[in-house]
């Protein structure tokens, strides 16, 4: 039974990074980093510039190798045998300037194991899907920045990858095209692909990602679901909007302090109490609760606090 569970867990994990280290010169760029990415999951990979995100992604892709530690990708060691099942959109990306865009995508598809005819058909289909059907034979130098970026993301999903690693995929895109490409990423996740997305846009991370990995100085700082992480930084407060909500703190066993403000009521929870405890107590009153939410900072604030060394990060690191 145990082995079945273990096997099942292994099958569910697209990437397992176990205590990896990487040093460039005298600097440890990645220090004992460990995390997993599950199939069908979108993992937000966050961190300030120079945190070691790109180095980590390159190690997963076997472009560079860790000095210590182990990485498993799609059930085995990174390498040629698995590279055909991976899609990668690096931050520093480009296309051949003097080559028709459909030819470039066809070449990238062939490198990822597709037959040339199959790759060309797929390239045509994907470019048409994002509105580049009229620009198939255009050279990259003739494309606008937005068209360029759409073509690049399509190049990444040419081979229906099982693991997709994208670095700042929506950077510089207008909202319409950003939404279009978010749809492409989410459809890949729905298909069952594991997606690792590096971004500096906390809004995207909060709305798109199932889990967040924040690193700084090559070390893991935060790791978990967005609600769990926000909750860890919530100061134990709950915000309630409703009618007839009692505001006397002594009426609640889970509350230490109540402060009504602008039609909202902020409940500060006692040590050890949870939002669930408060919810039960409110349900036992005659109050009509219209909104019950954890009064937690958004992900941008969590990011700043965690990078600044907030000790609460340890709870979700």
């Amino acid at each position: 039974m145990t082995s079945t569970v273990a096997t099942s867990a292994a099958v569910d994990q697209a990437v397992v990074v176990d205590d990896i280290w990487k040093r460039f010169g005298r600097v440890d760029v990645v220090q004992g980093l460990s995390f997993e990415v599950r199939r069908g999951e979108l993992l937000g990979f966050l961190g300030p510039n120079g945190a070691g995100k790109t180095t980590t992604m390159r190690m997963i892709l076997d472009i560079i190798r860790p000095d210590r530690g182990r990485i498993s990708v799609l059930g085995g060691e990174p390498g040629v045998a698995r590279q055909s099942r991976i899609g990668y959109l690096p931050e520093d990306r480009g296309l051949y300037r003097d080559v028709p865009v459909v030819d470039t995508l066809t070449y990238f598809g062939a490198l990822r194991g597709m037959r040339l005819s199959e790759s060309r058909a797929r390239a045509t289909e994907l470019l048409e899907q994002v509105g580049l059907g009229d620009s198939l034979r255009k050279k990259a130098a003739e494309l606008s920045r937005g068209m360029h970026q759409k073509a690049q993301l399509m190049a990444t999903v040419m081979n229906e990858p099982d693991l997709l690693i994208v670095d700042e995929p929506f950077q510089g895109l207008d909202p319409v095209n950003a939404e279009l490409l978010k749809g492409v990423l989410l459809s890949q996740r729905e298909r069952g692909a594991a997606v690792v997305m590096s971004t500096h846009d906390m809004g995207d991370a909060q709305t798109l990602c199932d889990r967040i990995l924040l690193i700084d100085g090559g070390r893991r700082v935060l790791y978990g679901t967005v609600p769990d992480i926000r909750r860890a930084f919530s100061d134990g407060a709950v915000e309630v909007i409703g009618q007839g909500v009692p505001t006397d703190a002594t009426l609640y066993r889970s509350v230490s302090h109540i402060s009504p403000m602008d039609g909202r009521i902020r409940f500060l929870l006692r040590d050890g109490a949870t939002a669930q405890d408060l919810f039960r107590e409110l349900a036992a009153t005659d109050a009509i609760v219209e909104r019950f939410s954890l009064d937690a900072p958004d992900l941008s604030e969590v990011f700043l606090r965690a990078v600044a060394g907030d000790p609460r990060a340890a709870a979700v690191a």
């Binding site: 076997d62 040629v80 991976i86 990668y88 959109l89 690096p90 520093d92 480009g94 490198l111 990822r112």
Partner: peptide, 20 residues
């Protein structure tokens, strides 16, 4: 140098190891 300047090289290296 063209692939390096065009920033295509990292996409290539994610599909093809440096030796091949």
């Amino acid at each position: 140098t063209e692939e390096k300047e065009n920033r295509v090289v990292e996409i290539l290296l994610s599909s093809v190891p440096s030796l091949p």
